[in-house]
Design a protein around this nucleic acid. Structure first.
Lengths: 192, 192
DNA sequence: TAAGTTTATAGACTGCGGTCTATTATCTGG
DNA sequence: CCAGATAATAGACCGCAGTCTATAAACTTA
C-alpha cells in the first residue's frame, strides 16, 4: 500500500530524499531559511537541482518536510497527565512547542511567511503544523471543563485561538517565545 | 522642521512620491502584492525604477507607506465612546480594523510575510501598524477595568495579545476576518 | 536483446528584487 | 556664468526560485 507500482523506468534514488532533507535541515539551522539557496542544498546533498523539484514543489515544501520529519512528533506532547493540573499541562505543552521552535532556528517564521503567498503550501502547513496543535489544545481545554478546572461558559475554540494567536503574534513580531510567555498564557487562560 | 535644507543639487520631483504611491495602491489592490513588480509600479507611475529605490528601501516599505497613508488614520477609532459598553467598543474597533483589512485586499498579510525576512522592515511595520493598535486596545481594556466591566485580576497586556493574536492567527491561516470574528473575540474577552 | 519508461544530470532560460554605473538634468552658492 | 551637488534615467548586472530541454542512466516487459 505504501509501495508504488513503478512498472518500468529508472527507479528513484532511494537515498536521495534522506540526504536532501538532512542537508536542508543542517543548512537551514546553520544559516537560516533565506540564506540557503536550493542550489546550495542540492550541492550539499550531492544531487542535481532538478532532483529536488522532482520531489517537492517549492523550497517551502522541502523545508517543511525536513523540519517536521525529524522533530515530527507533532502529537507526542506530555498531555493528559492526570497528576498535573490542566493549567500546568498547558504550560508544559507550550514550553515544549516553544523549545522545538527555538532549536529549529525558527524556520517556522519563514514557513508562515511563505504560506502567505502560496495557498497550496498554506494548506500543507496547516495540516502538518497548525491543526495537530489545535487539536491537542482543544482536547486539553475540554478536559479542563470536564474536570471543573475551566468554566463551561468559556468557548474552548476561541481560547485555543487566543493561545495559538498569542504565540504566533509574539513569534512574528520578534518577541521572545519562551517559558515566560508559556506561563503568562496559561495563567491568563486559567484565570480564576 | 519638516523641510529639509537641500542646499544645492537637483530637487526631488515633488509629485513623484504621490504618483508612485497612488500607482502602488491601485496595482496592489487590483492584482495583489506579489503579482505586482517594482518595474510595473514604476512604469505605471511614469518614473524610472531607481526613483522608487531613492525613496524606499524595499518593495515592502513602499507598499506599507502606500497602504497606511491613505487609510493612515491608525488611531481614529471610535473608541472611548461613553455611550457604549467597553465590550461593544472593542467589537466596533475590531470590525473597523477588519473592514480596512478587507478593502485593502489584504496586502497586510504580505507585509507581515515580508517582515519575517527583514528585521528593519519588521520594526517599521511594528511602529506603523502593530503598536498603534496595541495602544488603543490596552487603553480600552484599562478603561474597562476602571469602570468595573473587566476584572482587575486580568492582565490587560496579555489580553491585548490574545485579541491581536486571534486576529493575526485567523488572517494568516486564511480564515475569515469579519464581524463574526470580532464579536467572538469581544465575547470571550469580556466573558462573565 | 530491444523497446519503452522514468529518473538524474547539466545547463539554458525567465522573472523578480535589489544594486551599481554612466549620463543627463536641475538646483544653489560664488 | 561657473563649479559643485543631488536627482532622474536607462540599462547592465547579480542572486535566486522555478521551469524547461536534451542527454545519459537504470529499470521492466516482451
Amino acid at each position: 500500500m505504501s509501495e508504488e507500482k513503478h512498472s518500468g523506468g529508472r527507479p528513484r534514488d532511494a537515498d536521495a530524499a534522506a540526504s536532501i532533507k538532512a542537508a536542508t535541515l543542517k543548512l537551514v539551522r546553520e544559516r537560516g531559511y533565506n540564506k540557503v539557496s536550493i542550489a546550495a542544498i542540492a550541492s550539499a546533498a550531492g544531487v542535481a537541482r532538478q532532483t529536488l523539484y522532482n520531489r517537492w514543489n517549492t523550497k517551502a515544501d522541502l523545508v517543511l518536510e525536513a523540519v517536521f520529519e525529524e522533530t515530527g512528533h507533532y502529537a507526542d506532547a506530555p498531555l493528559h497527565n492526570p497528576n498535573k493540573s490542566c493549567k500546568l499541562q498547558l504550560e508544559a505543552f507550550l514550553i515544549q512547542v516553544f523549545t522545538h521552535l527555538d532549536e529549529s532556528g525558527s524556520p517556522i517564521r519563514s514557513l508562515i511567511a511563505a504560506a502567505q503567498e502560496d495557498p497550496a503550501f498554506r494548506e500543507a502547513l496547516r495540516e502538518r503544523f497548525v491543526k495537530p496543535r489545535e487539536v491537542l489544545v482543544i482536547d486539553l481545554l475540554q478536559r479542563a471543563q470536564d474536570q471543573g478546572e475551566l468554566s463551561r461558559t468559556r468557548d474552548v475554540k476561541m481560547l485555543s485561538n487566543f493561545i495559538h494567536g498569542a504565540f504566533w503574534y509574539a513569534l512574528l513580531n520578534g518577541e521572545p517565545v519562551d517559558a515566560r510567555l508559556a506561563r503568562a498564557i496559561a495563567n491568563e487562560i486559567f484565570v480564576a
